[in-house]
Design a protein around this nucleic acid. Sequence first.
RNA 1: GGAGCGGUGUCCGAGGGGUUUAAGGAGACGGUCUUGAAAACCGCUGUACCGCAAGGUACCGGGGGUUCGAAUCCCCCCUGCUCCGCCA
Length: 483
Amino acid sequence: MIEGSETCSSSVCSLSRIESSLSFTVHRTLTGRIASISLRGIRLPPCAKVQPLVSLATMLDYRFIKENLAEVKQNIVDRYMDADADLVVSLYDERMKTLKALEDERKKRNDNALAMKGKLPPEERTQAIEEGRQLKESIARMEASLEDIEKRLREEGMRIPNMAHPDAPRGKEDKDNLEVKRVGAPTVFDFEPKDHVQLGQSLDLIDFDTATRVSGTKFYYLKNEAVILEMALTRYALDVLLKKGFAIFETPDVAKTEILEGIGFNPRGAESNIYTLEGEDACLIGTAEITLGGYYSGTVFDKSQLPLKLAGVSHCFRREAGAAGQFSKGLYRVHQFTKIEMFAYTLPEDSDAMHEYLRSVEEEIFSSLDIPYRVVDTCTGDLGAPAYRKWDLEAWMPGRNGGEWGEVTSTSNCTDFQARRLNIRYKDDDGKNKYVHMLNGTAIACSRAIIAIMENFQRADGSIAIPPALAPYCGFSEIKPKN
RNA sequence: GGAGCGGUGUCCGAGGGGUUUAAGGAGACGGUCUUGAAAACCGCUGUACCGCAAGGUACCGGGGGUUCGAAUCCCCCCUGCUCCGCCA
């Protein structure tokens, strides 16, 4: 086991900026329109000035792929992904050649049109018109060819995953993840503990059977104290995050396909976990990472606005197609749950420190709830395409296969992978616009937090204690059997 | 859902096929003047890609079309405002 309290050398100074204090101010124009809002020192543009997403933007810079081809190919192997970097490079070269030729042709067209502005002898005019006509045709041909090349380049480029952190463990599946830290010990009982499904039934807190009839499998009704417990978890998380300077949101539960793709989801993909809305070009979100990451699409930040920390409450919808059996029992793997998500936009040099910070917030929340957990450094094969590095918090779940660690939160540093595709940049000191780094982390995923609380805090008489930190938010300190 | 009017640069705002190299104004930035500032005056001003550079190409909400040539004309879409309908 490795102690995971190391801090990158660059983090120390950056953390103080991350923990900046807050105040609410609304700046209005003379007409009363909201010009911008400061949430305790964090100035938010009122709404992103929406520019179209850059059509050629990809997960990685093409030039980077070309210049670091060997590393990019090794990374694809490490992550057990299917992508052809050689093809991307050759398409990129082909595109450049075609574009160059097209621009030359356009220049000829512009010169020709310019020459025709004034008066011309009829025969010269006729000749110029004929020349323009031919240029128009060749330009159209070259444009069609360029469009085809760019389409293929985009398709192939999209498949190239983000580079992985050099220290991320190499491996294929979650069993290759590296435990770096353990806080608290697995809960010991002097009786036979129940799982949360049994507890939910005996205490009348969760109704799976009716939900199956009304909505389908993997849905659930929360009832009675469980309803309050979920709201208490939500409010508790928001209070923690507000104190730390996060700007809080309740986000839409729906997002457009282009935003999903910008974040790194592939809604039309064969193994997609995403519900799409028929005829809408939009999807139910699987996480508020999508809506918080899309919030600033097309934005150019002033450098002083960063880092920016957001937190969002949303419902999360996941199809979980093919997930069946023992592991999908109960609340652990469901089609809908409520989640409080953290999201951060940073300068590139600050993202490692911010990633440590997000992990520390997750740990603080679970420590304060007295839930035993461990921290896992996710291996390359389990990272998913956007993540550069990912930490999971796994809480002890006594009812899971007789006692097991189960993922409750996850925090990823996606570096500039999402920023490229959503066109989110900042103006650097040299005057150039550069891509920000984007990170996300779970504060609380309610369904899984409820599992951890119910199963770890159950008592011999079948009742459940409420973690002391949460009791004031619930208005009760235990859930007793009903008679 | 229906009707009408809009969407132009950092902002406001003109322009309705080729004197647009996007007028004019504001702001920001640089300078002159000043003890300092203000005012005045002069200059400058976005993004992406290619290029060592000079320079080139594209961008007037998005896409398509007409034309030798489109911010400008035509079609579709998105979006904002106003009114009507429906609705919590």
